[in-house]
Design a binder for these strands. Structure first.
Lengths: 73, 73
DNA sequence: GCATCATGTTAATAATATTTTACATTATGT
DNA sequence: ACATAATGTAAAATATTATTAACATGATGC
């Protein structure tokens, strides 16, 4: 499956935050669990708005969660 | 017209970077001028990938260009 | 064994972002 | 006056992201 160009460590952050589940994170930022799954598995990148919300939950700068990896030339 | 929830200072940055035009910025990051116009006028938010590319052009952290302003309760 | 919870997969639909094209406006230079 | 460059506006078409729902798996506890 095609990976998107944005890497992330949401999964690691969830575990470091009291093993927050995908469901809890989803509810926290107001999206469905499917969206969390898709982002964690790099099926697609979140919107900028969603990325900011996620950074807000974990209280870290956005760039600490998401990194741009061009991949394509 | 409805504004999106992400603020930005691309316009200011363009002028501070040798008065870079919308056209030049667009070409730099590989999108059309319409996309730059839409983002600058907050018609919609860029994708996370685009936001990273724009930050790359201006060589500043993403959060220095884009700020999340919830607006809605 | 059975129920429950967390995670994963797939597919269809809805919502949003981006492209393309065309035309308008304002300022600048000749 | 005319040409050009930068910006703005609008609409339709396409691409990407997000939602919803249904079903599957592995782990845990009773």
């Amino acid at each position: 499956m095609q990976l998107c160009s944005i890497q992330n460590n949401m999964r690691k952050l969830r575990f470091n935050h009291d093993e927050m589940t995908q469901q809890e994170l989803a509810k926290n930022i107001g999206v469905t669990r499917q969206t969390i799954i898709a982002i964690e598995s790099r099926k697609y990148s979140p919107t900028l708005e969603l990325a900011f919300k996620i950074a807000g939950v974990f209280q870290v700068p956005l760039e600490e969660i998401f990194q741009y990896k061009p991949e394509k030339s």
